[in-house]
């Protein structure tokens, strides 16, 4: 059983600043498809964890990690193995 009301959870929207350092464009308005369960969500609406250390974005349906970002002195890290597609409106 998972307790989702952890008070430290934020929205993907709160990671927009960090992500915009990497993507340049605002990826929080894009849709992302979870590779684990196939559901699709707007990145800004995903549950965001560990903002103090980076950004861990999890699927609203299955809690799988969809996107991770960390800013370090030696570079930015980005991981999206948990995402199948990222869909932007152009």
């Amino acid at each position: 059983m998972i307790d989702n009301s952890s008070s430290g959870v934020l929205d993907g929207n709160a990671a927009a600043g960090l992500l915009q350092e990497i993507f340049v464009l605002d990826v929080t308005t894009a849709q992302i498809e979870c590779a684990a369960c196939g559901s699709t969500w707007v990145v800004g609406s995903l549950r965001l964890y560990a903002i103090q250390m980076g950004a861990i974005l999890r699927c609203n349906h299955c809690d799988g990690v969809v996107m991770k970002a960390v800013r370090t002195p030696h570079g930015h890290w980005l991981e999206m193995t948990g995402a199948r597609n990222l869909i932007f409106q152009v």
């Binding site: 009301s5 008070s7 959870v9 934020l10 929205d11 709160a14 609406s45």
Partner: peptide, 30 residues
Amino acid sequence: PTPFVESVSRLLVELGHNTRAVKTERFGPS
């Protein structure tokens, strides 16, 4: 605050609103 947002969102979904129609901005712990 996050607990407020999660409670309200859950209630709105219970009232029949589509979860994707509810945009949330959690401010973190109270």
